[in-house]
């Protein structure tokens, strides 16, 4: 098990094809937490994300004989994204989020600028609520850019856009957020 940690994704894939469950476990250790975080960007629900990602690994095991991908990492994240988007279409779980959002607007109306509440947990929550108001692509890129070991090149491959676009989206996201935060009432002017 120990030496598996040093193996590349490709080597682990070959071992997986030989029914090696240790290879699956190594891949699981390598990507599980990142994939769950990644999926939660779409679902905003960690336990649902964990459930879907566990299923994703089960699917990887079941399809191990036939699977043929260039980059396993990209395959995992693209699959996670598709699963998450399907899940959103299946259940409209947006209602809870709208409630949160309304709450945050109420707070903002009392002129509590989140930047003034330095570093308090609540102000992070308010900013996160505002992040959910961003156009989908900006939100995706901003949050993905904060995942560990998730380079701009990975974002560009998973979302199928150029690195330049990733950078532009990130820049727009931060710029829009600054506007949203200082003038919360003009929230729909992108």
């Amino acid at each position: 098990m120990r030496e598996y940690i040093l193996k590349s994704d490709e080597d682990l894939m070959s071992l997986l094809k030989c029914d090696d469950a240790g290879a699956l476990e190594t891949l699981f250790e390598r990507y599980y937490s990142q994939l769950c975080k990644f999926t939660s960007i779409y679902l905003n629900d960690y336990s649902k994300a964990e459930e879907l990602i566990a299923d994703l690994f089960i699917k990887l095991w079941d399809k191990r004989a036939t699977i043929d991908v260039k980059s396993l990492k990209n395959y995992l994240f693209v699959s996670a994204r598709n699963t998450a988007l399907n899940e959103i279409n299946r259940v409209k779980l947006d209602t809870s989020r709208l409630d949160d959002h309304e709450e945050s607007l109420l707070i903002s109306d009392e002129r509590l600028n989140p930047f003034e509440l330095m570093s308090s947990r609540e102000s992070y929550k308010e900013i996160i609520d505002l992040i959910h108001q961003l156009p989908e692509r900006q939100k995706e890129v901003l949050l993905m850019s904060r995942l560990e070991m998730f380079e701009k090149s990975t974002i560009s491959e998973v979302l199928g856009i150029t690195i330049r676009t990733v950078e532009t989206l990130l820049y727009q996201a931060v710029k829009n957020l600054r506007t949203l935060i200082s003038r919360p009432n003009q929230s729909s002017t992108f």
């Binding site: 975080k37 939660s40 960007i41 989140p114 930047f115 570093s119 947990r121 102000s123 992070y124 900013i127 996160i128 992040i131 901003l142 949050l143 850019s145 904060r146 995942l147 931060v174 957020l177 600054r178 935060i181």
Partner: peptide, 10 residues
């Protein structure tokens, strides 16, 4: 602050 908030999401 924005980046820290985004980090706290995870």
């Amino acid at each position: 602050k924005i980046y820290e908030a985004a980090d706290s999401f995870f």
